[in-house]
Amino acid sequence: MNEASTTILKSKIVEVCHKLYSRGLVAGTDGNVSARLQNGNILITPSSLNKGDVQAQSLILLAPDGKLIEGSGKPSTEVKMHLFIYTSRPDVNAVVHAHPPYATAFAAARLPIDAHVLPEIALMFGTIPLAPYATPSTEEVPQSIAPFVASSKALLLSNHGAVTFASDVHEAYLLMEKLEQAAHILFLAHLLGGAKALTENELDRLRALRKELYRKELFSIQGDLSQ
C-alpha cells in the first residue's frame, strides 16, 4: 500500500473514531479501532485517548505480530483481540470495539441479542454470539471469542462491550451502529411485553434472500442464520 492509500485509510479510521464518540457508542477513553493494510501491517488507535480526539498522527502502526513499527504512545490495550481476529479471518481488514450502551447492557446482563427478530438484522449478521467473560486486555479475550470469530461479524463480550469486524473500517463501524440499534429496539420491545421471533418459515425465506443477495454481491454477508 502506497503512502497516499495509507493516508486515506488513516483518515477513515479517524472519521470512524469521531463517529463512535459523537454518537455515544464510546465514552472517556473507551473503545479501539484498527485496520489492516495490504502489506499485512495494522493501524490501530492508541491507549488512553478519547476517540473524539483521535487524529491521523495519533495512530500506531504495528507489524502483523504486534511489534511496533511507527507511532508514539502505546497501542490499544485490546490489541491482542484485534490481532487474533486478523489472524483468524484473512477476509477481515477492520475491527471496531466499543461500549454502546444498549448492546453493552445486554452483555452486562449476559443476554444474547436475538438476531431472528428483525429481518434486516438476520440478513446482516446471521447470529450475534455472546462470548464468555474475559479479563480485558489479557489473552483471555482472544480465547473467549475464538469459538465464534470464524462464523460471525459481531460479538457481544460479556460484562464488557461489543466488537464488530468487516472487510473495511466503514463497514465495521456500520455494523456497530446497527448492533446498537438492534439492542435498543429489543430493549424497548421487552418493555412492551417482549419481541416475537420470526417463524422458521419466515427465516427460511430470509435465508433464500440472503443467498441471492450474496450471489449478486449486494451485501457482504457472513455468519450462520441457522442458529
Rank of each mutant, 00 (worst) to 15 (best):
Ser76Pro: 09
Lys178Glu: 15
Asn159Gly: 04
Pro64Tyr: 07
Leu209Lys: 11
Ile42Ala: 03
Leu118Pro: 00
Glu200Phe: 04
Pro75Lys: 08
Val33Phe: 06
Leu20Gly: 07
Gly52Ile: 02
Leu206Ser: 05
Ala162Ser: 14
Pro142Glu: 03
Arg36Glu: 14
Gly66Ile: 00
Thr29Glu: 05
Leu61Phe: 04
Asn201Arg: 10
Ala154Glu: 01
Leu188His: 10
Gly73Tyr: 08
Ile121Arg: 04
Val16Tyr: 05
Pro112Arg: 03
Ser47Val: 01
Ala105Gly: 13
Ile42Glu: 00
Glu15Trp: 09
Gln143Met: 13
Leu206His: 01
Gln38Gly: 10
Asp91Met: 08
Leu68Pro: 07
Pro100Phe: 07
Thr45Trp: 07
Leu156Asp: 09
Pro129Gly: 01
Arg215Leu: 15
Leu198His: 08
Val26Leu: 04
Ala109Gln: 11
Tyr86Met: 12
Ser72Met: 13
Lys74Pro: 00
Glu177Phe: 09
Phe165Leu: 13
Asp65Pro: 07
Ser76Leu: 13
Arg23Val: 12
Lys67Asp: 14
Tyr21Gln: 13
Lys51Trp: 06
Asp91Leu: 06
Glu202Pro: 11
Ala197Lys: 12
Gly52Ser: 06
His116Arg: 15
Phe165Met: 07
Asn32Trp: 01
Pro46Ala: 03
Gly71Asn: 10
Glu15Tyr: 07
Leu175Thr: 04
Ala189Pro: 01
Glu171Thr: 12
Asn93Trp: 07
